[in-house]
Amino acid sequence: MGFKLLSKLLVYLTASIMAIASPLAFSVDSSGEYPTVSEIPVGEVRLYQIADGVWSHIATQSFDGAVYPSNGLIVRDGDELLLIDTAWGAKNTAALLAEIEKQIGLPVTRAVSTHFHDDRVGGVDVLRAAGVATYASPSTRRLAEVEGNEIPTHSLEGLSSSGDAVRFGPVELFYPGAAHSTDNLIVYVPSASVLYGGCAIYELSRTSAGNVADADLAEWPTSIERIQQHYPEAQFVIPGHGLPGGLDLLKHTTNVVKAHTNRSVVE
């Protein structure tokens, strides 16, 4: 069995187990497998329904001669939608809004960016022009300005110390501490036991640490421990890039980060 097929099978099995364990909360999309990078042309966006009122959005972007996937989250909030992270750029984010209108038909009224990198804030200006209120932590807003990236308009308070959590509509926002970046936030959907790890969490097929220019490698494993301790009931975990899975993604990420750190020390 090929690795790609095995990865998709694991996603399907995880979703099936969740649907059985929580039949009222989960209505997993039966329309197909989780979209992969090879299936999404740059400039297009796919939506994948995880649970009743919960979707991931998947886009792709060219970077350094390669094409990478990027995940975000959409959560229903009454007759409105909360968006977590842009679709990595203005063109993708405009396509995301169009796809949401086509498939869901509810307005996106608020959006949260989970850290300051372009795959999370690139497209904020498109959201703002569409009347979406954009939010991020003060740290993310400051770092985005320093980096020359787009800056969300509103500040999220109460997320300055490791372990801080605040309720934001249908989700809980959690600051686990520094990891992929010093400002990275985690998003949890309690009604569906869905954990969105953003770039602080890796997919299972990833074996290298990737972009760690703004990471705190020493603190990252401790931050992941905080996530595990705060959300032990999480059933569906979405990484910032690639295929979702279960809580095993947290341990896998820790292993990859520690291996990278150990290699760096040896070198």
Results as ranks from 00 to 15, higher is better:
Ala21Tyr: 13
Val146Arg: 12
Leu106Asp: 12
Pro35Arg: 11
Ala215Leu: 12
Arg142Ala: 09
Glu203Cys: 03
Tyr196Met: 04
Asp52Gly: 09
Leu83Phe: 03
Val75Lys: 01
Phe168Met: 12
Pro69His: 07
Ser30Asp: 15
Leu156Met: 12
Thr253Tyr: 01
Leu173Ile: 12
Gly122Arg: 09
Met18Asp: 04
Glu99Phe: 15
Ala94Lys: 13
Gly163Leu: 13
Lys4Pro: 05
His260Ser: 06
Tyr135Ser: 12
Gln228Asp: 06
Gly122Ile: 06
Thr93Trp: 00
Asp85Asn: 13
Ser38Arg: 10
Glu33His: 06
Glu145Trp: 10
Leu127Val: 13
Ala59Gln: 15
Ala179His: 02
Ala192Asp: 06
Val194Thr: 08
Ala21His: 04
Val166Phe: 15
Ala87Cys: 01
Ser22Phe: 04
Gln228Arg: 10
Ser139Val: 09
Arg46Cys: 07
Thr182Glu: 10
Tyr202Leu: 13
Val108Ala: 14
Gly43Ala: 10
Gln229Phe: 14
Ala19Asp: 15
Ser16Lys: 09
Ala25Leu: 09
Lys251Ala: 08
Leu9Ile: 11
Lys258His: 06
Gly72Asp: 02
Pro170Lys: 07
Val54Phe: 03
Gly163Glu: 13
Arg226Met: 15
Arg206Ala: 12
Ala66Met: 07
Ala87Asp: 00
Gly105Thr: 08
Gly105Lys: 15
Val166Ile: 06
Ser264Glu: 07
Glu33Ser: 07
Ile227Asp: 02
Asp77Cys: 07
Ala215Thr: 11
Gly78Asn: 14
Ala136His: 03
Thr254Arg: 11
Ser160Glu: 11
Tyr135Ile: 01
Ile100Thr: 10
Ala94Glu: 13
Leu247Thr: 10
Ala234Leu: 15
Asp79Glu: 13
Glu172Asp: 11
Cys199Met: 00
Pro190Val: 12
Asn71Arg: 02
Tyr202Pro: 02
Gln229Thr: 10
Glu150Lys: 04
Glu101Gly: 14
Cys199Ala: 00
Leu47Ser: 04
Ser7Thr: 06
Ile17Val: 04
Leu96Thr: 12
Glu225Trp: 12
Arg46Glu: 07
Gly148Ala: 11
Ala21Lys: 07
Gly89Met: 03
Tyr12Arg: 11
Pro107Phe: 15
Asn262Gly: 11
Ala94Pro: 02
Glu157Phe: 12
Ser16Pro: 05
Glu99Leu: 14
Ile227Ala: 09
Ser62Arg: 07
Pro170Gln: 15
Val37Asp: 12
Gly78Ser: 06
Gln61Trp: 09
Met1Asp: 02
Gly53Val: 09
Tyr196Ala: 13
Arg128Gly: 08
Thr207Lys: 09
Ser264His: 15
Ala51Cys: 12
Phe174Arg: 06
Leu73Ala: 07
Ser223Cys: 03
Ser22Asn: 04
Gln103Glu: 11
Arg263Leu: 07
Thr134Trp: 03
Thr134Ile: 15
Tyr175Leu: 13
Ser160Leu: 15
Pro232His: 15
Thr253Pro: 00
Leu143Asn: 05
Glu219Leu: 09
Thr182Asn: 05
Ala95Pro: 02
His115Trp: 00
Ala192Trp: 07
Asp125Met: 12
Val237Lys: 01
Asp125Val: 11
Leu83Ser: 03
Gly148Thr: 07
Ala259Tyr: 14
Ala133Trp: 10
Leu83Gln: 09
Pro170Leu: 14
Lys91Arg: 14
Ser137Gly: 11
Thr134Gly: 02
Ser223Met: 03
Thr153Leu: 09
Val54Asp: 01
Gly210Gln: 14
Trp55Gly: 00
Ser155Met: 10
Ala130Ser: 09
Ile100Asn: 01
Trp55Thr: 03
Lys91Gln: 13
Ala98Tyr: 06
Val266Phe: 13
Pro152Glu: 03
Gly53Gln: 07
Thr114Phe: 01
Leu47Pro: 03
Ser205Cys: 04
Gln235Cys: 15
Val189Trp: 00
Arg141Ala: 13
Cys199Thr: 01
Asn71Gly: 09
Ser155Arg: 08
Asp85Lys: 00
Val132Asp: 02
Phe26Pro: 07
Asn71Asp: 03
Val166Ala: 05
Ser155Tyr: 08
Thr14His: 06
Gly198Leu: 02
Asp214Gly: 12
Glu147Trp: 08
Ala51His: 15
Asn149His: 15
His154Lys: 05
Ala165Arg: 13
Leu5His: 04
Thr93Val: 00
Arg206Phe: 10
Ile186Ala: 09
Asp85Arg: 00
Val11Ala: 10
Arg110Gln: 10
Ala234His: 01
Gly245Phe: 01
Arg46Leu: 13
Ala21Phe: 14
Leu127Ser: 02
Pro23Lys: 10
Ser208Gln: 11
Leu143Lys: 09
Val112Gln: 02
Arg142Asn: 15
Phe116Asn: 06
Thr109Asn: 15
Asp85Thr: 01
Gly122His: 06
Lys258Glu: 08
Gln103Arg: 10
Asp216Phe: 12
Gly78Arg: 07
Arg128Gln: 09
Phe63Lys: 05
Leu250Trp: 01
Lys251Asn: 08
Ala136Trp: 03
Glu172Gly: 04
Thr60Arg: 07
His252Val: 10
Gln229Trp: 11
Gly177Ala: 02
Ile201Lys: 00
Thr140Gln: 02
Ile17Tyr: 05
Gly245Ile: 01
Ala200Val: 07
Pro138Glu: 14
Pro190Ala: 12
